[in-house]
């Protein structure tokens, strides 16, 4: 337990001081605001629908920008774009230890491998909580400003809706972070891990879903992929699916319950697999 606490403290220090984390967090929040609010608000103010919102009436566009819609707006960008950022974070954090050669020193002199890995995972999940909280706070602030600017009533979403969306966001990000950690451990190199992770999340999953339309056995597989579970969880909260001119990554393949369970199972499986690899494999 002492080793786990020491490792968590060390990894939190490392992540906090790591410029790449601030860059990734900043990019994630900027994308969230740009695609969640800025472009839609500009198109609403311009009076003519953008390509994204052209099928919606201006009132519908505005209602999606108000505080009542924050839970859905926040989660809808997480299955794909936000998720990829967390995937990169996990891959760089674990792969970086191999790339810089620091794992060998940690494993020789520091706490046990299990404690070192556990501390890294706790630190990463702490970052996930901070990022999700920051996204919600930023979106609530932006939506409130838009409501005030457009003289709209400040109607808040129900607390259950916020909690459900917050939990879903945590689950989606935790799954992608654990997947990145596994990729970093498997590849033992940050660059290779990031490349392979992005290839999986942005290309292979989408290709498999495309092939699934014509091949039955592939469809069964595509329906339980990590990205499918993440997209379905967002879809179950009310985010518009990509197939219905909604956000890329949002799906309606699974209902909320199974999607959440599948995400939890993937998170645990990826985390355990990475831990076992790290503990059992030779590193120095």
């Amino acid at each position: 337990m002492t080793g786990l606490l020491a490792s968590t403290r060390a990894e939190l220090l490392r992540l906090r001081k790591w410029p790449a984390l601030w860059v990734m967090g900043g990019v994630g929040l900027a994308l969230n605001i740009l695609f969640g609010y800025v472009f839609d608000y500009l198109s609403y103010r311009g009076g003519s629908g953008s390509e994204i919102t052209e099928s919606l009436a201006p009132e519908q566009v505005l209602s999606g920008l108000l505080p009542a819609h924050v839970p859905v707006t926040t989660v809808q960008g997480m299955p794909m774009f936000g998720g990829v950022i967390l995937l990169i974070l996990g891959a760089l954090t674990m792969g970086g230890g191999y790339g810089w050669g620091t794992w060998k020193t940690v494993f020789t002199q520091g706490p046990s491998r299990a404690a070192a890995y556990g501390g890294t995972l706790v630190a990463l999940f702490t970052v996930v909580i901070v990022l999700v909280t920051a996204a919600f706070l930023l979106n609530f602030s932006t939506a409130t400003l838009i409501a005030l600017a457009e003289s709209q009533p400040l109607a808040w979403p129900p607390a259950t809706g916020i909690v459900r969306a917050f939990g879903s966001a945590l689950l989606i990000y935790a799954m992608w972070t654990a997947a990145g950690a596994l990729a970093g451990t498997l590849a033992r190199s940050p660059a290779l891990a990031v490349g392979l992770s992005m290839l999986w999340a942005l290309a292979i999953e989408n290709l498999l879903r495309g092939v699934a339309n014509v091949l039955g056995p592939i469809e069964a597989l595509a329906n339980v992929l990590p990205g499918t579970a993440a997209g379905s969880l967002a879809g179950s909260l009310g985010a518009t699916a990509f197939s219905e001119d909604g956000t890329p990554g949002v799906l309606t393949t699974l209902s909320g319950g199974p999607a959440a369970l599948l995400l939890a199972a993937y998170t645990a499986a990826f985390a355990v697999a990475a831990g076992l690899l790290l503990i059992k494999r030779d590193t120095v």
């Binding site: 403290r9 220090l13 790591w18 790449a20 060998k104 002199q109 706490p111």
Partner: peptide, 28 residues
């Protein structure tokens, strides 16, 4: 034990002090 490997094993994207503090924290 303290072990210095032939190839340096510190984070290149952290400062010297941050690296030392990282390892210090790891040892409590």
């Amino acid at each position: 034990m303290g072990y210095l490997t032939q190839a340096p094993s510190v984070y290149g994207d952290l400062t010297v002090r941050e690296n030392a503090r990282y390892f210090a924290a790891l040892y409590g």
